[in-house]
Design a protein around this nucleic acid. Structure first.
Lengths: 213, 213
DNA sequence: TACAATTTTAAACAAATGATTAAAATACTT
DNA sequence: AAGTATTTTAATCATTTGTTTAAAATTGTA
């Protein structure tokens, strides 16, 4: 009989092996492109165990998807509420997302694609939406506008500027390297350069041309 | 017997109906999420006709995919080679991509996702890569740098700045509207505003703060 | 109209897929 | 060690999938 909850934490190994394998395969092939047997093979387990531990492909996927949504937003939220200057915060947000996507190159495409194809899966992830909306960041932006520190712009626009520029570097990696004939090393250097460009461009736009350096 | 080429152009209707339906369904559900019967149903035709006219799901998909790659890059290439000022050109590129993605909201996610999942399909589309690479744009950028019109930056970085910022508006539409509680009308206004922000931000970054207005 | 070529249809095929089952193997408890 | 609960396995199920086939319908041609 299948355990609905993980009561005894002794035998995590099988369940965790499935989860780890599922993350890998789902991120690579997407929900539709993945079979339960792909995951079983990756985890080196019998394919019936997928249903034994997670009841269905859909439920296993949701578990993975929610984890990836968390990963996608977690760092942002942490930085959002730090008591540091706005300029500092923006640079931190850029650095964080850059590292996150560099370490998880398939994350951006996975989240955006699955979310586009099946929006209702995201509608259920209310936690993220609430927390994002109630964060300290929006107030900080409004204050900075009032004090004249930055130009008049909404937090939503700022968020989008950050996310688009960083995320797209990695999502378009294949296109970029193919069109311009880059090697992997070329691309790493290019990406690092692009990050600095973005920092300066967004910084200048919001705060005005840099006085320092 | 199936016609390899479209010799007599009299009976385009069926083949074209398939193509149109395939574009719609593939863009909505992706290659893996689409069945040949989905397309047949959308086209209101017998499902054996899919193979009669296009020989296989893969071949039908490639036909659609190449069209979408063309659409994705076509306008850019046209503008690239126009004999207009760089500043003018950048604004035109932004406006063009904005309109294109507005009219084809699923295009960006489709192209990037399928390309990520199956890069070899893109490797075969050499035409685009060559043309992009040999375009007049890169020389124009180099000249503008030499003359001091813009800062020292490669055409590749500029391209990426343009593409990321416009494309992401539409690819992240569901995420944006859900998180910040926008209606469709809210989003249209937001997107239009964001386009102007991007224009100014990239323009300022490349050319320096605007003297006009 | 009669004949041939083309297009469309319904039916079927083999392979793959998500899921289930019942037995076997393992772990745990007393 | 014996008995119970849990985990793992191989086999199987009903659908779905891409594709093929052979007959029917339609179109074009003499």
């Amino acid at each position: 009989m299948k355990p609905l909850m993980n009561m005894n934490c002794s035998n995590k190994s099988a369940e965790e092996k499935i989860k780890i394998a599922a993350i890998k395969v789902f991120l690579e092939k997407g929900f539709d492109g993945t079979t339960i047997r792909d995951i079983a093979k990756e985890a080196d387990l019998n394919c019936a165990l997928m249903n034994y531990y997670f009841r269905s492909k859909e439920k296993l996927f949701r578990s993975v998807f929610e984890d990836m949504i968390q990963l996608f937003f977690k760092g942002i939220l942490e930085i959002f509420n730090q008591p540091i200057s706005l300029r500092n915060k923006l640079n931190k947000l850029i650095d964080h997302d850059f590292e996150m996507f560099k370490n998880n190159p398939k994350l951006a495409n996975f989240v955006l694609n699955e979310l586009t194809r099946n929006p209702e899966r995201f509608l259920e992830t209310l936690s993220i939406k609430k927390v994002l909306n109630q964060s300290f960041f929006e107030k900080q932006v409004l204050d900075a506008i009032k004090s004249g520190e930055i130009r008049d712009i909404s937090a939503v626009h700022i968020m989008l500027l950050l996310k688009s520029n960083i995320q797209f570097i990695f999502q378009s990696r294949i296109m970029t390297t193919q069109i311009w004939g880059m090697t992997d090393e070329d691309f790493d250097i290019f990406a690092a350069n692009h990050k600095e460009i973005i920092k300066e461009m967004i910084g200048n736009y919001l705060f005005g041309p840099a006085d320092t350096e």
